[in-house]
Computed example of a mutant assay.
Amino acid sequence: MPSSGEEYLIARKKQIERRRKIVTIVSMFSFFGSTVFAIIPAIQQASQPKPATASASPESLLQQQAQGYELVLKREPENLTALEGLVNVRLKLKDTQSVIAPLEKLVKLRPDRSNYKVLLEQIKKQQTKSNQ
C-alpha cells in the first residue's frame, strides 16, 4: 500500500503533466491561429482583382523630370548636375528651343567641355534651318 507521501507525488506528477498538456495545446492553437490571421489577409489580397492603374506616358514622365530639375535650378542656379539633366531631358522631349538657355549656362560654367559647345552650335544651326 502506497504511503501518503507517494500518493502525493503521484498526484502531483499527474497534475504537472495535465498542465503541460494544456499549455502545449494552448500554445499550438495560438501559433496556428496567428498563422491563419497572417495568411488570410494575404490570400484575400491576392485573390482580389487589381485595379488597372493608368500608367503615365514616357513624355509626361520626362516633363516631370524637367520640372524637378527646374526646381533644383531655382534653388541652385549653377548646379551642373541639374543643368545637364535638364538639357538631356529636353533633348529627349525634342524641345530644342528650351534647351538653348541651360546649355549656354553649361558652356559658361564649364568652358573646358567642348561637347557642350558643339551641341549648342548644332542646336542653333537646327533652329536657324527650321526658321528659314
Rank of each mutant, 00 (worst) to 15 (best):
G5I: 13
E6G: 01
E6I: 06
E7R: 07
E7D: 07
I10Y: 05
R12Y: 12
R12C: 10
R12L: 14
Q15T: 10
Q15W: 13
I16V: 09
I16Y: 04
E17F: 14
R18A: 12
V23P: 00
T24I: 11
V26D: 02
S30P: 04
F32I: 07
G33T: 03
T35W: 06
V36F: 09
F37S: 03
F37D: 03
F37P: 01
I39T: 03
I39S: 04
P41T: 01
P41E: 01
A46D: 00
A46Y: 08
Q48V: 02
Q48M: 05
P49Y: 06
P51K: 12
P51W: 01
S55T: 11
S55P: 00
S57H: 04
P58E: 05
E59P: 07
E59D: 13
S60A: 14
G68D: 10
E70I: 14
L71N: 14
K74F: 12
E76M: 11
P77T: 07
L80A: 05
L80T: 11
T81A: 14
T81L: 12
L83E: 04
V87P: 03
V89P: 07
V89N: 07
V89R: 01
V89K: 03
L91M: 09
L93E: 05
L93I: 08
K94G: 01
